[in-house]
Write a protein that binds this DNA or RNA. Structure first.
Lengths: 160, 160
DNA sequence: ACGATTTAGATCGTGCACAATTAAATTGTC
DNA sequence: GACAATTTAATTGTGCACGATCTAAATCGT
């Protein structure tokens, strides 16, 4: 903890820019990176990245949905999802096929391999819980606050 | 809110994969995206991205530091910082020069333009606070929890 | 029926994040 | 003083995120 104590008067703090440590955005940013780092090693065994894992979670939860539906669930657009889904397809985990009813949409479905990966994926939450250990006092409350934060930001972001 | 009520017995939930909404990682992930979105519009006026803004914050706080020092402050490696810093240099905001004492290091310093951007940047925290509105009950507590979360994850991540 | 609008995805360009590798300078040790 | 080990950045390659633009299909209005 460098330079925290003894705010002597020689360094006048009036003109200071906001300190990194005091900012929520930075805390969220770093927590996100930290999660990513842990997930990287946990998911390496499954051959997935974290966003790919999220996509598989959605698909395990609801097979046969469209790209748009997945995009809404994950709040990602087609510019992000299309290449990600192509990689999952190339890995043999999912199929992407145009809906015959409405050819605008692309339906996503699990292959047998994608199904079976689900079993291997079951231990992931346990691994993460173990990584977190007892560091969290109240996960539920933290979750609520983060979601409130997200909603407030999104509301401010799109005045459209 | 699709399919939340009436968990009837026909769909046995025993085999469910973890729900997205219940996961801390997802909440952090989405809050991060939301922050980014708001910052994008707030920072557009300064011509900065959020990570670039962070780098400028660090530099405003401590001019003349090395790439390594900034990397430690932001927890980013040179693979991320080098191109980012080159963009800031190309924008005329900073200088990157090898330390004459130790030619391995690159010292970062503000140009006059980078200094003056500081003034324009002062309103950024206000804009963000306005975007957040009163959505937050206790910022301090949330900050603590996020930092605890980060530290626990990092501790688990690098057993090295 | 048919032109205008809307919708779903794909594509392209920019920028961040990180692992792995490389190169150069410095330090420690003999 | 020579040389191995370490330190510091840069480079390369892969993948995510998103704005902007494009194409094709479906839908709407008259």
């Amino acid at each position: 903890m460098p330079g925290r104590e003894a705010m002597t008067a020689d360094k006048v703090p009036e003109q200071h820019s906001p300190r990194l440590e005091d900012q929520l955005c930075f805390a969220v940013y770093q927590a996100g990176h930290a999660f990513n780092r842990v997930y990287r090693s946990v998911l390496a065994e499954l051959g997935l990245t974290y966003p790919q894992y999220l996509a598989m979670l959605v698909l395990w939860e609801c097979d046969g949905l469209t790209v748009k539906a997945m995009g809404e669930r994950l709040m990602l657009d087609s510019g992000t999802l299309t290449p990600l889904l192509k990689r999952l397809e190339a890995a043999g985990l999912i199929r992407r096929e145009r809906d015959r009813e409405d050819e605008r949409q692309v339906r996503l479905s699990l292959t047998a391999q994608g199904e079976s990966l689900r079993e291997k994926g079951r231990c992931v939450p346990d691994s993460m819980a173990r990584a977190l250990g007892g560091a969290l006092e109240s996960k539920g409350r933290l979750l609520e606050q983060l979601n409130a934060l997200r909603d407030a930001l999104l509301a401010a972001a799109e005045p459209a």
